[in-house]
Amino acid sequence: MKKRIALWVMCLAMGTVFYGCSAPEPEESTDTGAASEETAETERYEGNAEDYKAALLIPGSLGDKSFFDASYQAVGLLEEEYGMDVDYVECGTDASKYYPAYVDLCQGGYDLILTVSSNGDDALIQIAEEYPDQKFISLDGELDDIPSNVYIIAPKNNEMSYLAGAVAALKAQELGDKTIGFVGGMDIPGINEFLVGYIEGAQQIMPDIQVQSSYVGSFTDTAKGKENGLLLYNSGISVVFTAAGQSGIGVLDAAVQTGNYVIGVDSDQAEALKDSQPEMANVVITSAIKNIPENALHIVQKAMDGEVNYGKKEYYGLKEGAVGLAENEFYQKLMSEEDRQTISDLKEKVMNGEVELTETMGLSTEELSEIRDKVRP
């Protein structure tokens, strides 16, 4: 605990529910082509799990009730399941602080350093090259040029967003609407993966559905998120999917104010809010979830067993239990039994390969614009 506090204070000084699933295995090991030609040699950890030293660097801020909070839950799950003491550093949004934090961790004698998000990719590449014997795992990353001592878990965002789109369309259909909304944190490829999957899932239910999208320009601006949400709701849209991190809390606030609905992202947002802000929880139909804590539990075990494919990126989706939907009390209340069965059937089809989703990796700006413009109101 002292070390954890010291790391946290260090980062400040420099300027600064989850959805249960079985342990995931990647559908296939994917070499991006840009990855290092050689992977780092791995050895089985022969000590006790409680003596294994792991740390998590969070290149963002806790309290978003979404992505970074879900990432932090990995700390508690690893401690609970393996008895290990996992340190963490919360570094905020200033990217200049990530590299010094990595240096401090690399000098701390950790067997494994975990991180999340593409926010810290530049620092991760630099530190991995400077400390070639240190092992790193990103629990949710987009990096393509992967150092030989780094492993990337890449969740299939379009699969969980496909289900979110189907939920949105079913709810809109129930309400007599033909348009749904989307609020992204930024207009970047990683967020547009969510949008493309969302559009395709909605079209599965209602082929002529329209989707109005907007971007906050930040993952931490709740006021701007609320402004974006209000613009969509006041235009007559009743259901909005938000993939905007902490900015998405503003969209939830807008839904409460206007009496409409939201689909959350990354963690079970209704579950996270039901005690502190029940009025928000009550408007969250479901959440498209990345099972980051469970993924961390699985991959750390593989690291201890010497079975991680360092130097590569591997994709995890619905089939592996790495992403999904929150099927909580709010989902049960806000979606009819028939509609829930429709979603369950679609999930099975995705897992069985019966649904062909657009491959979002490498999607050009022009291709994305075409997809987005075709469904604009």
Results as ranks from 00 to 15, higher is better:
residue 236 G to C: 09
residue 339 D to Q: 02
residue 130 E to G: 00
residue 355 V to I: 11
residue 21 C to R: 14
residue 241 F to E: 00
residue 204 Q to E: 11
residue 375 V to W: 02
residue 299 I to R: 06
residue 143 L to N: 04
residue 130 E to N: 10
residue 282 N to H: 06
residue 354 E to K: 06
residue 142 E to C: 05
residue 263 I to G: 02
residue 103 V to A: 10
residue 273 L to V: 06
residue 30 T to H: 15
residue 282 N to R: 14
residue 55 A to P: 07
residue 12 L to N: 15
residue 39 T to G: 13
residue 308 V to I: 12
residue 204 Q to Y: 07
residue 217 G to F: 11
residue 372 R to C: 10
residue 289 I to L: 10
residue 328 N to R: 07
residue 376 R to I: 14
residue 218 S to N: 09
residue 173 Q to K: 10
residue 104 D to T: 14
residue 341 Q to K: 08
residue 220 T to D: 15
residue 282 N to F: 12
residue 233 Y to C: 06
residue 353 G to F: 08
residue 136 F to Y: 01
residue 184 G to N: 05
residue 235 S to Y: 08
residue 102 Y to K: 00
residue 282 N to K: 12
residue 172 A to W: 01
residue 287 S to H: 04
residue 105 L to F: 04
residue 48 N to Y: 15
residue 192 N to Q: 13
residue 41 E to F: 15
residue 150 V to F: 12
residue 353 G to I: 02
residue 357 L to M: 08
residue 305 D to A: 08
residue 83 G to V: 06
residue 166 A to C: 05
residue 262 V to P: 08
residue 277 Q to E: 00
residue 187 D to K: 15
residue 150 V to A: 04
residue 62 L to P: 10
residue 272 A to S: 12
residue 230 L to D: 09
residue 210 Q to L: 07
residue 291 N to P: 06
residue 335 M to A: 03
residue 339 D to E: 06
residue 93 T to A: 09
residue 71 S to G: 15
residue 284 V to S: 08
residue 242 T to W: 11
residue 90 E to K: 08
residue 153 I to G: 03
residue 274 K to R: 12
residue 76 G to D: 11
residue 279 E to P: 14
residue 1 M to L: 15
residue 18 F to H: 13
residue 64 D to C: 04
residue 344 S to T: 10
residue 270 A to T: 11
residue 325 L to S: 04
residue 17 V to M: 10
residue 267 S to A: 12
residue 211 V to K: 02
residue 190 G to H: 14
residue 175 L to T: 00
residue 373 D to E: 08
residue 343 I to W: 03
residue 216 V to W: 09
residue 370 E to C: 04
residue 206 M to W: 00
residue 226 K to F: 06
residue 188 I to Q: 05
